[in-house]
Amino acid sequence: MRFTFFFREALRSLKRNAMPSFAAMVTVLVTILVLGVFIPIVQATTGAADEIRGKLLIDVYLRTDAKPADVARVRTLLADKTPNVKSVQFVSKEAAYAREKARFPDQYELLGKTNPLPDTFRVTPINPDKISEIRNSLLPVAGGGTVAVDPAIEEVKNRRDQTAKILEATNFIKITMALLASLLALASVLLIANTIRLSLFARRREIEVMKLVGATDSFIRWPFIIEAIIVGGLGALMAISLLAVGKVAILDPFAETFALIAAPETLNFGLLIAILLAAAIGVSAAGSTLSLRRFLRV
């Protein structure tokens, strides 16, 4: 009884205040539309940046005379005792030889049977930002130069200049995107909250009368919250259908052309819809509750 009453009250006031409700709904629609376009762009960009960073590796070269025992020892050292290591891939000198020979058959013809290549471990870091940590732990600074922690390690390479540039560029992109995204989210919340405040302000007399007649705060509040949920939900649903049309009509045909869009982790459309819907409804309901507080103090 209570809920149906509140629900009917909400629908009634939506009907009687059609214009402000419509304005609030359009605000939600536009905001969600902008967010819905922008969030995938942020995701795609940071996804691309992360992909580039994921390609950062450290190569650990062993001495050419390393025995299988040495290989096993270094593998444990890398996998278990070194910080920030995500995975270790072993490239044996034979495998390296075969690959290089396939790439440069003529040159390797000249070498004959001799194999100048060392056994190599390719180490993928957990956090690309701290890639130098791995290097420092394998080649601690001692005296004037550096000495490898294990005698079998000949050299540790992380192509330092390149790494620094990649990290810097991708960091910049990620920070910019995060900043833009949070600004946009903040603007959306403020815009929706303000629209709600305006429509409540127009009805503050009504709220005052309700209070003076002896209505409890929650009795007044619930219809407003339900109203906000309906407005927010409708606005978000319309925005999402527009987005879906946009995705089918514009994005999908180009998916093959643009690698960025096709990138697997770019976006999960279902999740995006759920987040946008929940955010629209949540912000509307919360905004309505907060704005009401002022007018309920009678």
Partner: peptide
């Protein structure tokens, strides 16, 4: 404060 509505009735 919370009881005021009931009083007003």
């Amino acid at each position: 404060r919370k009881k005021v509505p009931y009083y007003r009735r």
